[in-house]
Amino acid sequence: MDRRHRLALALALGHTLLLAAYVLPTGMVPERAHVIGQAYARPLFHQWWGLFAPDPPACSCDWSVPGRIPPGLVRARALNGLCRHAQAMPGCGPGADTCMVPVELAAWVEQLTGHSTGGLGLREACLPDRAPQERPVQADRP
């Protein structure tokens, strides 16, 4: 292996270590290294490998609207992603009577479902019995 090849390998390893400091579980990476990894990776090399990890979500997440939601693989995925995003917010977690979400999020759900947020609800079914629950969604106006 010549000098140039060794240098290329060292550069690639350095890049991968910085990414590792960003993507590995935070408890496994020293805090200072994580901060450096975040500054390096966040804008240009962002990635996330936590699908169904550390455990799959205990609650399902779905939007309920007065009518039918248009079909579509990517649309359904986007709606599920936004639902999970809302579910993780402090104003929308389990136990809350209503689900408060930012205006931008509500507007996107409105566009994707084709319905106004007036009758929008967040429906979830949690383990162990998966009993369905629903609460109304309110856009959090600034």
Binding site: L24, P25, G50, L51, F52, A53
Partner: peptide, 9 residues
């Protein structure tokens, strides 16, 4: 990364 995240649960 995905393995280590899964091993946390």
């Amino acid at each position: 990364a995905t393995t280590l995240h899964k091993l946390q649960g």
